[in-house]
Design a binder for these strands. Structure first.
Lengths: 228, 228
DNA sequence: CATTATGTACAAACCAGTTCGTTATAATGG
DNA sequence: CCATTATAACGAACTGGTTTGTACATAATG
């Protein structure tokens, strides 16, 4: 119930339409900062440049995020959150184990490919020896579910006789990540050195197929592979 | 023949012992610069810090390398040269194909592990979209031999009935690189997120075995795998 | 004496973070 | 319902330290 008939305080649909919009400002700063950090790294990014591209100002960056490192950490957390939220959309429950694993790898491959700036943030964070990730309470929690998914597919596969036993789901996640991550992280140097455009549709299709193949061959029982 | 009997110009064993040693100074600068760039990135590294750690001075850095980017490029080329020279030591000629491939993967895994600062330079260069590598005449040539080695092992393996046909040696190199590179490049974030020390001896031994396994299973014919 | 090699001090630009001031909204008291 | 005060949101200009690069001077070398 709007008590005052002031245009500035009108409610659109429950949320007040204010000319001051702290949440929006914060989000806007974070988006631009994420782009700049992903593009230029922590030391390469410029607060002034971020501020200039924002709807807001430098003053507001310090108002909301404290300092450059605080802004970087927020951008890092944001990158992880966005990507993990996207990953939650994958559902392999109905599928038989081999198909489920195939879908998981394909999905991871595509997802990494589509989220290059997340990959770059992780690269940058590794350059910094994961120091900022270490300070973040938020990020670690986000990654547990990824393992649950693999673990359930794998144990079903073993139970149904398709997968060989004795593998560790975290190791499996490592292998899949390695291949899908490298595809994005090292594309530039690899393309230049071998004079191929690995970003092209054809090259990506080939790589994707091979990555899937590689994981499946690693996990499946040899007799099941030969039988195919 | 030493014309002057000046102590400063004495020859030790053919090389003049000069108090001015341009090659030595250059090399010293390059070594320190490589460490600093690998540690802090292009924008993170500080010329003053490099100069301070050198036997020489900031003046000499600009004298020999022009500017910061020139120094970075020299460090990048140096990193590639060192690593590729090391790789040339691997000899798999006498070995049967499966063993040769196994050796190649193990060697690559170990070699990447031992040359972390090379890995970091490549990471940093990828952050810069391989712009500097692009300007280097030197680097591209260094990488061709790596492919020759794989290609010869692979074609022998196919001819002798151990490997399945139809694979591309460059793709194979990509897969091996991906797994061995990721092991070093993403160790920090992966260790933190999954609360495991992936740098420990045990973890490295496990990963190494799995990487080898993964590549062999990918390349070998399924009937040969099952027969083992 | 010309060229190469080296040290010192400085300048100009850059950049993170702050100061100070203004306006908008919420809270309180009459 | 208005006045007053507190606090939240924002902007412009500035500061102090940093950092790349240079000017100038000097020493060694041929």
């Amino acid at each position: 119930m709007a008590t005052r008939d002031d245009a500035r305080r009108r409610k659109a649909d429950g949320a007040p339409t204010r000319q001051q919009d702290p949440e929006g400002t914060r989000r806007n700063i974070l988006e631009i900062a994420s782009e700049e950090f992903a593009l230029n790294g922590l030391s390469g990014a410029r607060i002034d440049e971020i501020a200039a591209r924002t709807r807001s100002s430098k003053r507001m960056i310090y108002y909301y995020f404290g300092d450059k490192e605080g802004l970087y950490l927020a951008a890092l957390e944001n990158a992880y959150r966005l990507v993990r939220e996207g990953e939650a959309e994958l559902d392999t429950d109905g599928l038989p184990p081999v198909e489920a694993l195939r879908r998981l790898v394909e999905f991871t491959f595509d997802h990494h490919h589509q989220h290059e700036s997340f990959i770059r943030m992780v690269m940058i964070e590794n350059i910094h020896h994961a120091d900022y990730l270490d300070r973040s309470e938020v990020i670690r929690q986000l990654n547990v579910t990824a393992i649950d998914n693999i673990a359930s597919i794998y144990s079903r596969g073993v139970a149904e006789g398709w997968f060989r036993p004795g593998l560790d789901p975290v190791d499996l996640h490592w292998q899949i990540s390695a291949l899908c991550f490298f595809n994005v992280s090292n594309r530039a140097t690899f393309s230049r050195i071998f004079d191929r455009d690995l970003g092209s549709l054809e090259a990506q299709a080939t790589l994707r197929g091979q990555v899937v193949d590689m994981v499946l061959r690693f996990v499946m029982r040899a007799d099941r592979l030969a039988a195919e």
